[in-house]
Amino acid sequence: MTMRPITFFRAGSIDEAVAAVSSHPDSAFLAGGTTEIDLLRLNVVQPTLLVDVNDLPLTYLEDVDDGGVRIGAMARMSDVARAPRIVERYPGMSQALLLGASEQLRNMASMGGNMCQRTRCSYFRDGQSPCNKREPGSGCSALTGINRGHAVLGTSEQCIATHPSDVAVALVALDAMIRTIGPDGTNAIPIERFFLRPADTPSIEHPLAHGELIVAIDVPALPVARTSRYVKHRDRASYEFALVSVFSAMRVDDAGNVAELRLALGGVGTVPWRAHRAEEALIGRPATPENFAAAADAEFADARTTPMNEFMVTFAKRAIVRELSEVTS
């Protein structure tokens, strides 16, 4: 635990919030605080100015372009999870939210904050070990350390940290759009471009300018998402991040072929993982367990494992096959 003197500023408007953070080099937005305050106390992040965005009028949920939904960045996870239009149009997203964290946390945690939550890699969070994400160039302790829960997809020599979010897995499958307002104006970022793989710069996780505020998340209309599902496999029955999670939305045509498929995975990637290869392998093909297995193999063809997290590949493939088989039957 550490405690440093910090300046706290409650922004009254979006402009004020953006101006306050962008004009101060060591500043950060504060939403629900469930990541930010945690990391601050662990000495992992060291802002000297916190700009509270809880008063901003960003808690709305509204309809956009026939059938889509715009979610304000300050909407709380618990509210979004239970909103009728989310439950009806994107049940898998509602499930992803409800399977995340705990009810107390979900009541605090915002959707914008969720997009920016940091990895649970314990070397990152200890504030001391060499970690390229926390301290660029210091090395990656996880590569040769305890890495049972680390990513097998999208990794680099610099970092193998897993992206922890559940709801972001649903959102990458749904092709959501992240809307921001920054010092240089408004911006719309397709969600898959919002999450950056570590590559050579694991400390840079998003293409956001300092002071750029997420204001909303747009989820486009997608009829097949009305039967979407999210399953989360973990060591204990509740209140834990995923070992492997699967979001799926699939339509099988009358001939038994996969007509539409959205598939994304949590717990295995350095970013919320859209299973593009598996989708490609299946669309237009018969929805059979053999094809599901082949698609899962394709998705993990480039997986990079360590002795401790090797099992995740088999685990994840089985989870995919099971999920798609259950959806089909």
């Binding site: 314990s122 305890i146 204990r236 834990e240």
Partner: peptide
């Protein structure tokens, strides 16, 4: 819990990561 062989440090040091059963278990 296990000790990180490089640093000699316990890998888990909080109740978020050192898992004990929750009610659902």
């Amino acid at each position: 819990n296990q000790i990180d062989r490089q640093s000699g440090r316990w890998a888990l040091n909080n109740l978020g990561e050192y898992l004990v059963p929750v009610h659902a278990d």
